[in-house]
Every structure is written in C-alpha cells, then in structure tokens.
Write a protein that binds this DNA or RNA. Structure first.
Length: 380
DNA sequence: TCGAATGATTCGCA
DNA sequence: TGCGAATCATTCGA
C-alpha cells in the first residue's frame, strides 16, 4: 500500500480536528449548523490559513520533520517527536504544525483530494489525453521486424546463421563454398547483436530507475497536492515514450550496422558462381519439357528453387536468360532440346511403368503435349 | 589469354 | 509486376 492510500484509508473514522484547534466558535457552529457544513467551512478556513504561506516554503520547512508514521492516520498532533515545545521542525510554529496535521487528518480531506483530482483529470488530462493513444509507430515496427528477421533481436536461434545461410544460398554456392564468409558474417552479426542487447539493457535499466525516481517524487508530492494514480501513470507513459525514442535511435543505428554488414556480404555474393550441374539439369529439364510455355508459375519456381538449392529470383533470372538466349539461337540449343525431350520421355515412361501400368499415360510436359522434338533448323 | 558461357542487373514496355 | 532485351561481370575451358 502506498503512502497516499495508507493516508486515505488510515484517516477514515477519525474524529476530525484535534482539540487544540477546536475553538468555541466552531463548537457553537457545530451545534447550530449541520455537521457537513461545519466540516466544509472548517476545512476551507484551514486551507486559507495555510495558503498564506507558499507551498514551497511550507514544504521546505516541513519535509525534514515528516515521517511516514506521522501521516499514517494518528490523530495525536504531538506524534512524531514534536511534543513538548512551542517550536518544532526548524522553528516552525507549533500552531502551523497543528493546522497542517489537522488538515491532513481531517475526515473530509480524502473527499476534497478526490474532487481536486477529478478536476485535474477533466482539465489537464482532457488536453493531453489525445496524445496518449498513439498507434504503434510504423517506423519502430519496421525496425523491430528487420532486427527480428536479421536475428539481432528476439531469441537467439541461429538467426544470424540462418540469414547468412540464406545469403549463401542466394549466392548459388554450396554451404562449404561460402563457409568463410558465412562464419565471418555470423561473427560480426553476433557482435552487433551483443552490443545491441547490452545497450538495450542499459536503456531499460535507466528507464526503470528514472521511472521509479519520478514515481517516488510524485508520491511524495501527492501529500501536498492532488496527484491521482492516473496522473502518475500518465507521467510514467511519458517517460516510457521518451525512452522508446532513444531506443528507436539504437534500433536505427543497429539496422544501419546490419545493412552495412549485409551489403559487404552481398558484395561478396556478386562474385558469380555457376549453378551446379544437377541444378542446371533440373532447370533445363523443366524448360524443355515446357517449351510450349516456358513460364513457370510461382509455385513451380519455388519448387525448382528448392530442388536446385537456389532462390526463386535466381530461377526467374535463369528462365529469363534461357528464354531470350534460346529464342536468339534456337539452332544452337537444338541438340540440348532433343536430349532433354528424350530424357523427359524416358523418365515419364519409367514413372508410367512403375504406376502399375496405369491406363492414363503420363505426359512429359505439363500441357499434356509430347516433349518437343526439333529439327536442326529449329522447327518442330 | 581469349572467347564463349552464364548469372545478375538495368531499363523500357504493356 | 512480369517480361524481353541489352548489357555487365564473372567463370570456365581451350
């Protein structure tokens, strides 16, 4: 339970002002007026008396003397080591002490406190409330996604090596071909990851410490001015926003570092390597068995990419190059075309035979047409 | 070393 | 956005 709550709950059921401050007029008023009216008049009178002195001045003189026990609900004005002297608390008049204490202990104070809080909620919060429900920043989301994809943020489950492996695959080489770049990339990415997490941890710690500090300050201040829990929450949210903007800078610079690393790694990829024989065979097989329509669908490209151990875009590049080069020099590719047409037909026949001599004969190409066989001049 | 082969990139177009 | 076409850059074999 925090101080303020303790103060509020502790005060319930107290008997009102202490004897020292109850003057005969008050008693008469209490007799002639209703109890609530007397309370309000009384408490306002107390406030007027206290506001003669500035809050800062009063606080400066009062805080050194205050102890949580004092605010805990006791109605003994002498509690807290102030008994037995005309002056207490660095020369603060005992009368002031009593008045302040009486005000804090007054049973109407919680109600007044909540009313003041409500007024604040309606004025201040209504102005600032608009900013509170900001949608998640798309830039942060992009940064988060990128860091996650690169394996920098999130659980370490070989993200870096996965990214490196993907890049290596994109290079078209076997994993061993690029093992040196791979391990280098992984080591540097791990370094970036370590720095990122270490900095993030520092920021989070600083944020947490600062938030606690501010919350404590506000709780302290809530003894002398109306500060609702909602207001404290709002303040915490403001702090978090400030710190998240710092975090965004960290994320940005981390992303930049990853991009630089990646571009360096990708530059290495530009060193073209020919696809291996088996991959070229698979691609050619598809190309010549679909010669009437050598445009693989996205699914087919994915399938081919998987079979060949290359990326979908490499498959697209290959088919793009193949189509244009085939078209430019059909004669030159004729032998190759015939070779694959025969191979496809033989494979199809084997599949057909294995399928228990099924009635529906398998066809070598997707369109249901026989594999094209060309004359050396390029005609069907 | 040179030329062919080949993967990647860029640009314009529909 | 996918394609054709041109071109670049690299690999490979004679």
């Amino acid at each position: 339970m925090d101080d303020q709550t303790r103060m509020m709950t502790g005060l319930t059921g107290l008997g009102g002002l202490p004897q020292a401050d109850v003057d005969p007029d008050s008693v008469r008023k209490q007799q002639s007026l209703g109890q609530p009216q007397q309370d309000i008049g009384d408490i306002l009178q107390q406030i007027m008396a206290i506001t003669d002195e500035s809050l800062d001045e009063a606080q400066a003189r009062c805080w050194p003397e205050e102890s949580p026990a004092h605010w805990g609900g006791s109605d003994d004005p002498t509690e807290g080591g102030r008994a037995g002297g005309g002056m207490a608390g660095g020369g603060l008049p005992l009368n002031f002490q009593h008045r302040k204490h009486a005000l804090n202990c007054h049973r109407m104070k919680p109600a007044l406190f909540s009313v003041l809080c409500e007024i604040k909620e309606k004025t201040v919060l209504s102005i600032r409330g608009v900013q509170e429900e900001d949608p998640p920043d798309p830039q942060i989301m992009r940064l988060d996604n990128m860091l996650l994809a690169e394996g920098v943020s999130g659980p370490e489950k070989g993200g870096g090596s996965a990214a490196a492996a993907a890049a290596a695959a994109a290079a078209g080489g076997s994993p061993t071909d690029s093992s040196i770049e791979h391990s280098d990339y992984r080591a540097k990415l791990a370094q970036i990851r370590q720095i990122y997490h270490s900095e993030l941890e520092k920021y989070e710690q600083a944020c947490s410490e600062f938030t606690n500090h501010v919350m404590n300050l506000l709780r302290e201040q809530s003894r002398t001015r109306p500060i609702s829990p909602k207001e404290i929450e709002r303040m915490v949210a403001i702090i978090h926003r400030k710190f998240s903007s710092i975090q965004m800078q960290l994320k940005q610079s981390t992303c930049e570092a990853v991009m630089i690393l990646r571009s360096r790694f990708l530059d290495a990829r530009r060193k073209r390597r020919n696809f291996n024989k088996q991959a070229t065979e698979v691609l050619n097989e598809y190309f010549y068995s679909h010669l009437s329509n050598p445009y693989p669908s996205e699914e087919a490209k994915e399938e081919l990419a998987k079979k060949c151990g290359i990326t979908v875009s490499q498959v697209s590049n290959w088919f793009g190059n193949k189509r244009i080069r085939y078209k430019k020099n059909i004669g030159k590719f004729q032998e190759e075309a015939n070779l694959y047409a025969v191979k496809t037909a033989v494979d199809a026949a084997n599949v057909s035979a294995q399928a228990s001599q099924a009635n529906s004969p398998a066809t070598p190409n997707s369109g249901g047409y026989p594999a094209p066989c060309y004359t050396p001049d390029g005609r069907l």
